[in-house]
C-alpha cells in the first residue's frame, strides 16, 4: 500500500518535473525526429555533388537553414555558426556544419558556391545543400524550422539543430536567445 502510494506520488512528481522542464526542452522536442537517418537524404552540395545526411554520421553534425538573399537573420545565424566552429577548433574537435537552403528556386549550388566565396566560408566541413521543395519542406518540418514565403522573401526564424556523432539528435537552439554552449 505504502509503495503504491509512494509510486503515485513519485509519478506525479515526475509529471510535474516534466511540465516544469518542458519549456527548456521544447526546442529539442519540437524537432519531431531523433536521428539523422530519418531526414530526407537527397541533396546536392554547393559543388553539385550528391550528399546525404547519413554520409556525415561519424562526427557531430550541426544543421541550420538559410537563404542567400537574407541580410537580416541569416548573417546572425552564420555568426553563431562561426563561433561554434571556433570553439570546436579550440577544443580540437570535429563537426560537420550543414546549411540547407530555404529558397529552392534561387538557391542552387551555384548560388551557394558564390555565397561561400563572398563570405569566405571556405571550410571543407561546411556543406551548403540544395534540394527539392518537398525535401526542404519535409526537413524544415522535421527539424522544427518554421518558415513561409512572402514573394521573394523567406520569413523564417533562426535555429540550429545538433546531432551527435552517432547521428542522434542532441538538441536545438534559437541562437539569438538560447545558449548553445552546453550542446557542443
Amino acid at each position: 500500500m505504502f509503495v503504491r502510494h509512494a509510486a503515485v506520488n513519485l509519478w506525479r512528481a515526475a509529471i510535474a518535473c516534466a511540465v516544469l522542464l518542458a519549456p527548456a526542452m521544447a526546442d529539442a522536442s519540437d524537432a519531431g525526429v531523433t536521428r539523422l537517418d530519418q531526414l530526407p537524404q537527397t541533396w546536392r552540395d554547393e559543388l553539385g555533388h550528391p550528399l546525404a545526411f547519413t554520409d556525415l554520421i561519424g562526427q557531430r553534425v550541426i544543421v541550420s537553414m538559410a537563404y542567400t538573399r537574407c541580410h537580416n537573420t541569416c548573417p546572425a545565424t552564420f555568426a553563431q555558426l562561426r563561433r561554434m566552429q571556433e570553439l570546436l577548433d579550440a577544443r580540437g574537435e570535429r563537426a560537420s556544419f550543414v546549411i540547407v537552403g530555404y529558397d529552392t528556386q534561387d538557391d542552387d549550388p551555384a548560388s551557394w558556391r558564390q555565397y561561400r566565396a563572398n563570405r569566405h566560408l571556405a571550410r571543407g566541413n561546411w556543406h551548403f545543400l540544395s534540394g527539392t521543395p518537398q525535401a526542404v519542406r519535409q526537413l524544415a518540418r522535421q527539424l522544427g524550422f518554421k518558415y513561409w514565403n512572402y514573394d521573394t522573401h523567406v520569413m523564417h526564424d533562426s535555429r540550429i539543430v545538433f546531432f551527435d556523432s552517432q547521428g542522434l539528435l542532441s538538441g536545438a537552439v534559437a541562437p539569438a536567445t538560447g545558449d548553445w554552449s552546453g550542446l557542443l
Partner: peptide, 12 residues
C-alpha cells in the same frame, strides 16, 4: 499498479 511500482523503483 505494476507500472507505478516500476516507476517508483526506478526513481528510488
Amino acid at each position: 499498479s505494476t507500472r507505478h511500482r516500476l516507476c517508483a523503483l526506478a526513481l528510488l
